[in-house]
Computed example of a mutant assay.
Amino acid sequence: MNQLPDFDALQKSVKPDDFEADPLPGWAGVATLFGAPAAPMAQVSVGDDGWAVAGVPFDATASSRPGAAEGPRAVRQASLVFASYLNSLGEWRMLDTRSGDTFRYRGPQVADVGDLHIYPTDTIRTFKAVAAESRALSQAAPRLIFLNGDHSATFPTFAGFRSGRLDRGAGRVGFINIDHHFDFGNWSALHGPLYHGSNSRRISELPGMRPEDIAFVGVGDVTKYDQYRDLLDRGFHVVPGTAIRKEGAATALRSVVHHLGEHCDTVYVSLDIDVLDSAVATGTGHVTMGGIGTGALLDIYEQLRPLPVEAVDVAEVAPRYDPSGSTAQIAAHLLFNFLFRAECAESGLSPWTDPAAEQTWE
């Protein structure tokens, strides 16, 4: 008969420091983004190239399926699985076997300030609070991540970010909307002028914003023909999802990246998760047919790396419609790649291009 160990003796033989450096499993730990330290907004400090994270759990302008207010918490929870990657893989040169790219993981500082103030039954007060707090974050931190609820929240997070950058001397601020829709509506019978389908229009109306500094990437839904022609005639960039699928992200995005890189001091990138086909990402408020795939979305973000991207957001993750948790995992994985992957100094060396390594891939 097996004897039980003497737990009293065991616990006296160890101390908490013996376990402090061990990683936690992906479902454990404090649910901040990637397990980053929590910090009060007034005391956020992430160095010269770090990221401050804030959530906006607001979905009061949902028109079809509410639930995106639960997205920020779900993305944070999903991100914990990546928390130990930097310690375990950061010293190694890595190969992305999907693309053939080589890279290393880098570790910029990240601090999570929690959620900004929202008022579920008062959209205008919510937007005032979010814009003001986003501006303060933009003044205090070099780069920002917003975990937004429904896509309406991108209007105040962008407005606050832009104001903070203008306060710091920036000139032109670019905006990239990665979305199945243009979100260029003017008025909703349900919500008025501020709703999840008007955020891009409201952003374009901010004083000093130029159409040529705004890009719509991944669009694939039906839209009013006259509005579409007007966007093109005024100089907005439009990159349909079909162009990305047919030409590849590098070719489809070349002119956008060139223009924003030449003319903008900083760029804000907003992702509505419904740019992905609903067969891939079910956990969102709008069922998307004909959206892009996850590989194409990864490629889009890789093409954006040369830009001075200083703010990103993810919107419309609604976990109640995805019991598997995959949609939140996709959002977390995408953010992890964009933040922590860095090209190797010896770029261009991979089994795809390095003749010395060809034998290993036959």
Rank of each mutant, 00 (worst) to 15 (best):
P207D: 07
L206M: 14
T97Y: 14
G169W: 09
D8S: 14
P308W: 06
P351A: 15
G169T: 11
V75Q: 03
S64C: 09
P207H: 03
T360P: 00
F58I: 13
P16Y: 04
G197K: 05
D17N: 09
D277L: 07
G47A: 14
Q227K: 10
Q11R: 15
V110N: 02
H151E: 06
Y85I: 04
A74E: 00
T61I: 08
D49F: 04
L95V: 12
G348I: 09
L147V: 02
A111V: 04
R229N: 09
M1K: 10
R172A: 12
V239P: 01
N337L: 09
D233F: 02
Y225P: 11
R168G: 13
S278Y: 06
D313P: 10
A74Y: 04
V173R: 01
I214D: 00
D274Q: 05
P211N: 03
L4E: 02
G291C: 10
F127G: 00
G218H: 05
R254V: 01
R172H: 07
G248Q: 12
R172C: 01
Q303M: 10
G26L: 10
K128V: 15
D18M: 13
R201L: 15
N199F: 08
L206N: 08
Q43F: 08
F58A: 05
L231E: 06
T266G: 06
D221Q: 10
D96M: 14
A332R: 01
R165L: 07
G114A: 12
A170N: 06
G295L: 10
G235K: 05
D59K: 04
D274A: 06
V317D: 03
P108D: 13
D265Q: 10
E262A: 15
D274I: 05
G149A: 09
A141Y: 01
R93E: 09
Y228N: 07
A153W: 02
D299Q: 10
D299I: 03
S350Q: 08
K224E: 14
W187Y: 15
R104M: 10
R125P: 01
T154K: 02
M41K: 08
S152A: 14
E316S: 03
Q359Y: 05
E247N: 10
I214T: 09
A68S: 15
H263N: 14
T97S: 15
S13L: 09
A39H: 00
P319Y: 00
L194H: 11
A132I: 02
I300V: 15
A311C: 11
T360N: 09
A141P: 02
A331V: 06
P193T: 13
R234E: 14
A345S: 08
L297F: 09
V239I: 14
G295M: 11
L232S: 12
A153N: 11
F19D: 04
V269M: 08
S152W: 08
D299P: 15
G114D: 11
W361G: 08
D233M: 08
A39D: 01
L307A: 11
P240D: 05
V219Q: 02
S326P: 00
A243V: 06
G290E: 10
V275D: 00
G283T: 00
A62H: 01
R229K: 14
I292A: 00
V173W: 01
S138D: 09
R73D: 03
P120E: 15
P351D: 15
A315Q: 11
